[in-house]
Amino acid sequence: MFDKNQRYNNVDPLEVADGVFHLGVQDEKNTFNNVPYMIVDGDEAVFIDPGSAKKEFYDVVLTKAKKVIDLKKITHLIVQHQDPDLCAALPLFEPLVSPNCTISAPLEATVLVQHYGLQSDVAALEDGDTLEFGNGRTLVFAMTPYCHFVGSMVTYDVQTKTVFSSDAFGGFTPDNLLWADNGNYPEQLSLFLGEYLGSKRALNYAVKRLELLNADSGIELICPQHGCVIPKELIPVYLNAAKDLQVGQQIDTLAKKHGITLTDIN
């Protein structure tokens, strides 16, 4: 049972599932909290969406990451798309992690991620690829194209049935509550996704892909890169909220402003 009032701070990592650590940083000014995750199993770790290079963000993540594990035991850095809020710290972490660490991203994102100034090559991930820890714990990568970039994906930890959803299911959260609720978070999520996603078709695919994953294997937790962690009992609520969402409306606003007529094909 989780404490719905639990908050995170700027010092301590929080274990939200077995070996899954939340390293979130509050961004009160922009209400756009940034949440990297570390998965630790035995003597190795996978770092998902390590975060920003902005000092006040990076320092917090570094402090928390060091409390989770010796950084030299990080064997994989995974980024789920190419945005700077989740990737810009890559070149800062690169010299600190295992010398054999691989850096991976969805295929279409690799050509962009390299420009953060990495020394290593970025390995391309495709839909259905997996990553196995030494003792067999498996991560599955599921592409969610155009949600919100062609090379976007979510990552599924088979052991804990946790989905790391990247921007999908993120929200604008001005405080540091760890868990999503049925109060403010639906609106915080709708505002973020409604403005940042351009295609309802892309969102529908992502939602249906998660529903399929839930039906086949079960989802216990959704861990987005912004906002709050969604516990099992609220997952249907948020899947439905995503289904009802209107996205891409800024196109209509600007089309109207400039007298552009669009054929509604998407």
Partner: peptide, 12 residues
């Protein structure tokens, strides 16, 4: 009304 959920801190 829409601003309430994203201005829950005293400062915001």
């Amino acid at each position: 009304e829409a601003a309430k959920p994203v201005t829950v801190t005293v400062d915001s």
